[in-house]
Computed example of a mutant assay.
Amino acid sequence: MKFGVIVFPGSNCDRDMAYVTRDVLGQSTRMIWHQETDLSDCDVVVIPGGFSYGDYLRCGAIARFSPIMRSVREHAQQGKYVLGVCNGFQVLTEVGLLPGALVRNRDLHFICDRVPLKVERTDLPWTQAYTPQEVITIPIAHGEGRYHADEDTLKALEDNQQVVFRYCDAHGNLTPESNPNGSLNHIAGIVNETGNVLGMMPHPERASDPLLKAVDGFKLFTGLLSVPLAI
């Protein structure tokens, strides 16, 4: 499986992601500058965290116009895999590959912490290595991570089971205290209707190396390795 990691001006988690896919997973990985347009050799495209274009205007608003994003849309439409983490999730909502928006955290503070997440679905390539309702711990680091959408969009997400990860407490309970940024419905990660595009605010690549004694994010990547690839 070949991974492509998009690099925007201001990306700062691209090397972390490549370290996991190339050095920990042992998979072919290519760093892709945002002005490139060819993704034909990639099975999985990753839009990493960071501050694309300095987060000017709003997070992801300028990155959506980069030349590579047209190719990312085509890649997704072909049924191939796209992962957006943190700023990457913001970019995916801006470009329309995922619904909703990521706005300022409830308390207007940047949050850097490790938080529990409940895995809501395990029938997806992204989550098949987890167990149903498993509670995992993944780092977060964002100032604009509060998921927001209108009522109809939220209902559609719930009805279609597109919510993949929710913020919770250590026992899987959804409490106000366990929702670090005020996301509606405790949403931490969602997929598109076909399940090949995943956006999430927490950073699985920061919990994928045994040297860090944090590996709850590693299963997200290993689950992909056993799935058939789109042609």
Rank of each mutant, 00 (worst) to 15 (best):
G88R: 06
V95Q: 10
A76N: 05
P99Y: 10
Q78P: 00
V82L: 09
N105K: 06
V85S: 14
R104K: 15
G84C: 08
K80I: 08
T93C: 14
P99M: 05
R104D: 10
L98N: 08
A101H: 02
M69N: 11
G100S: 07
K80Q: 06
G100T: 06
P99D: 15
Q78R: 15
G96S: 07
L97K: 08
F89A: 04
L98C: 13
N87D: 13
C86V: 04
L98F: 03
V103Q: 13
V91M: 01
E94A: 07
M69C: 01
V82K: 02
Y81W: 15
R106L: 13
R73G: 00
V85I: 15
E74W: 00
L83D: 01
Y81E: 00
G88Y: 00
G100V: 03
G79H: 06
L98Y: 02
L108Y: 14
H75G: 08
Y81R: 14
V91S: 10
S71F: 02
G96D: 02
V82F: 05
T93S: 10
V85K: 04
D107G: 09
G88V: 06
N87L: 05
H75K: 12
G96P: 02
N105A: 07
G84P: 06
V95P: 03
L102R: 06
V72C: 03
V85P: 05
V82I: 12
S71H: 06
R106Q: 15
Q77H: 14
Q77A: 14
T93Q: 08
V82A: 01
L92Q: 02
D107F: 12
R73E: 12
V91F: 09
F89R: 01
G84H: 12
Q90N: 12
F89I: 04
V82W: 09
N105E: 10
G84T: 13
L98V: 09
G79C: 08
L108K: 15
N105Y: 13
L108V: 12
N105W: 14
K80S: 05
Q77G: 10
R104T: 15
A76W: 04
R70W: 00
Q77D: 11
V82P: 05
D107R: 10
